[in-house]
Simulated scan of single mutants.
Amino acid sequence: MKKPTLLILAAGMASRYGSMKQIDGFGPNGETIIDYSIHDAIKAGFGKITFIIREEFLDNFKSIFDAKLAGKVETDYVFQTFDLKKYGIDKEIERAKPWGTGHAILEAQNQVHEPFCVINADDYYGYEAFKSMVDFLTTEASAKRYAIVGYKIGNTLSENGSVSRGVCQTDADGNMTEIAERTKVYPKNGGIVFEEDGVETSLEASTPVSMNFWGFTPDVFPVTEKLFVDFVHKNQDNPKAEFFIPLIADYLIKNNIASFKVIPTDAKWFGVTYKEDKEIVQDNINKLIESGVYPSKLW
């Protein structure tokens, strides 16, 4: 069986961070967070790394990753563009940002023909998550069976501001029944709350949330394209509307097209949303190196 592919979402604009955090250096030799994800992915058994980027990022990405990954893993690039004609939409819609994470994976449909995993470029996930996802993609994944790694929300917060999290509801079998996007989650008085319309609601620290670590087969592409086309028509006058992966998952679940296994993990996530997060990420990486999880020079 062909090894699964890792899709890395790296076309975002990083507006809150202030620069291209996807290729910012965090390790002792300038390693990006992506470097650590790729290192773990190769070790776990992924056979190809596909970067989903904006075309103007290409030279930067190739200069950083191509040489170091040569001979270790196959690499590929997909451009997330504003061209809608490929989806039968004969209209130009002015936007400052790409159409979102769901559109990003759709852009890869002509280059990905095997089970695949999707992650963010600016999040650290840990080896355990990659190994669990490879096991799922090579033994369980099908047109009717997908997965998401569920991180405990208490292991995913930023010290420097509120974060957005997809809060997962599960059934007795550990399958996701619903994912609700909470755009303002933060710690408060020793607990965790999310705020909506000025109202705070408490969340248990063990609540599983999405950190955009998904597992699919290529069967997801046709239904994603249909959903995206419908989304564009409904939101053509809303330049900030984004077509997110959870919208795809929600549709598949509610229409009994596919189920999503929530793969649990106790791993501590860390990532960069704000510029102030950089020092925390660097400290976490240094601790992982000191404990022997990674060598000081990754490649």
Rank of each mutant, 00 (worst) to 15 (best):
K68H: 08
Q22M: 12
I245C: 07
V232M: 00
G126T: 09
Y17Q: 06
Q109L: 09
V193L: 08
V163W: 12
F26G: 07
E159F: 12
P208I: 00
I179L: 13
I257W: 07
F213I: 01
N160L: 11
G150Y: 05
I8W: 00
I53H: 00
Y251G: 02
E74Q: 08
S142I: 03
R182N: 11
E56Y: 04
K72N: 12
Y125W: 12
K144E: 14
I53F: 03
I245L: 08
E159R: 15
K184I: 07
R95E: 09
K3D: 02
S291C: 10
D237E: 13
G154L: 11
I64D: 02
D266H: 05
A41C: 08
K268C: 06
F61T: 06
E290K: 15
A121W: 06
S210A: 06
L288M: 15
K97W: 11
H113E: 14
G191Y: 00
I49E: 04
K152N: 14
V209N: 03
E140Q: 13
E107C: 14
T177H: 10
M13Y: 08
E55Y: 03
I53G: 03
E200P: 03
W214T: 03
Q169V: 12
K188F: 02
C168G: 07
I192E: 00
L6T: 01
E290D: 15
F194R: 10
T183C: 04
A96N: 13
A104Y: 10
Y294V: 04
A41H: 04
F216N: 01
Y251K: 03
G150H: 11
W214Y: 14
Q111R: 13
I119C: 06
K184P: 03
K254I: 01
G100W: 02
I253C: 01
G100N: 05
T101C: 07
F221K: 06
V73D: 04
T81W: 05
W214N: 02
F194E: 11
A67T: 13
M176R: 08
P218I: 04
V73L: 07
R182P: 07
E107D: 11
H233N: 14
G102Y: 05
T177F: 09
F244P: 00
Q80H: 13
V78N: 01
G161S: 14
L58I: 01
S19G: 06
E56R: 05
K234F: 09
T156C: 15
G166P: 13
C117V: 10
N155M: 11
E107T: 10
I34G: 07
G25S: 15
N29T: 11
L252N: 00
K261P: 01
S202E: 09
T201F: 02
W99T: 05
F65I: 08
M20D: 15
S202W: 00
H113N: 15
F221P: 01
N110D: 15
I285T: 10
H113D: 15
G18P: 07
T207C: 04
A147Q: 09
L137G: 05
G292H: 10
L84A: 11
G215E: 03
